[in-house]
Computed example of a mutant assay.
Amino acid sequence: MNKGNALPVFARGFDRVRLALQTSLAGGANVDGTLDASTEPMRWTSDCLRDGYELRYRRNLDDLGYGDEPMRGTRTSALNAVCSLRGLFTDEAIAALREIGRALEGSASSSNWIISKRVRAVTNRSRFIDDMMHDRAFLLRLSRLAGAPLIPYPMVNARSQFNYYYPTAQRDGKEQLGMWHTDGTSFVLNIVLSDRSDYAGGNFLFYESTAETFDRHDPARTHVKTASLDKAGDALLIYGSKLFHGVEPVTAGRRMSLVLSFHCPYTREDDNGFWHLASDDGIPRTLVNWLALRRSLRDDAEMQYYRLGLAPIRAEDLKDTRLSMATS
């Protein structure tokens, strides 16, 4: 089994351009198809959120060593880099997410990219998850945890995906892992949908320092942390474009997770790069989506919330006393 600091690193620089060309020839990842809404286990409402959630661990970007502001006008001490959470959702909502993930698993695509087995564009497939990401109560809760007002990431293909991990021998003879990588999107919620007793291995690792100092070969594993994701529904909200993270190989059982990405509409800054996206979708499809993304980011925040049918979330809405009470 790989040690945490020996996980491979997702392609960077010219290697990412090469992957984009390969994906273009292969047709890109599977993003088509949908579930019949009438067969989904339940409808999403704000009642699917649990009031008494637990904030188990928190570090902001300043704690990680980021002195420069990644978003103009927002201090690094106000933007959270890692938030470990338990109890965000009711048991019924977690059961619904698990059932949706199982229903989509048969259409998961394989790749040698960041995640070995996955289903992308989940909001196009599941009304439950689409409604969840467009629920103002859910967005407000995540905005308070992130330290910035949020909306669903404007590009649908990069907004949501299920990830599946199995022992190597069970799936194509390939090691099922999540490579060390940073995300194209800045605000990313990782929700594990398997209990720890369901699988062995598969630890979620993150590097608690600046991306520039990351060294996967460091024998001391300096700043490498293991997230406490032991119960279905446990979640980690990360500043994904700054925080290196990955998932170790699963050696037994099966691990499933849902990953959701968000954007702050009060900034036109966006860390997602064209070649990062093209490695997923290929160049032709990405070109169309990229131009649409750039257009949507030019609109002011009020317009972006209006298009979603939501009352705007503003800076004054973010105060949440539970954040100040979190323990390290």
Rank of each mutant, 00 (worst) to 15 (best):
S143Y: 06
L277R: 12
R58E: 15
M155C: 05
N203D: 12
A26T: 14
A11K: 15
H134I: 05
E69G: 08
R322H: 05
N112W: 14
E302C: 05
L205N: 03
N203F: 10
A220R: 14
F138G: 02
Y57S: 02
G4H: 02
Y306F: 12
I114T: 14
D281E: 13
G147R: 03
I94W: 05
V31H: 03
P312R: 03
R86N: 11
L104F: 05
R12A: 08
F206N: 07
P70G: 00
R75L: 13
N2G: 02
R58M: 15
G106P: 04
A232H: 06
R16S: 10
L308S: 13
R56C: 10
D130A: 08
G178N: 05
Y239V: 11
K174I: 10
A26L: 14
L237Q: 06
E208Q: 10
M71A: 08
N2C: 08
G27D: 01
T226R: 11
I191S: 03
R322N: 12
Y266N: 01
L318G: 02
L21A: 10
N289I: 09
R18S: 15
K231Y: 12
R268V: 05
G4Y: 08
D32R: 13
M71F: 12
L310I: 02
F244A: 04
Q161I: 02
F262M: 02
G178Q: 08
S324A: 15
G173S: 03
R58L: 15
A6H: 14
G246W: 00
K117N: 15
D271H: 06
D299K: 15
P149T: 02
E69T: 12
R43W: 07
R171T: 15
C83W: 13
A211S: 04
R255L: 02
E248M: 14
V188W: 09
L61W: 08
E248I: 01
G178E: 01
Y57A: 02
Q176T: 13
A326E: 06
S143W: 07
G246D: 03
Y199G: 00
V82T: 08
E105K: 08
L177A: 00
S160V: 00
D281C: 13
G309W: 10
D68A: 14
F128M: 00
S126W: 06
R12Y: 01
S257T: 13
R16Q: 14
F162W: 10
N203P: 07
A78V: 09
L323M: 14
C48I: 07
N5M: 05
A108V: 12
D234P: 04
G67Q: 08
L88K: 02
F244T: 05
L193P: 04
A20R: 09
Y306K: 11
Y199K: 09
A93V: 13
V188Q: 11
P70T: 01
L150T: 07
I115S: 14
T185M: 15
R59H: 13
A278P: 05
N203V: 13
H134V: 04
R127P: 09
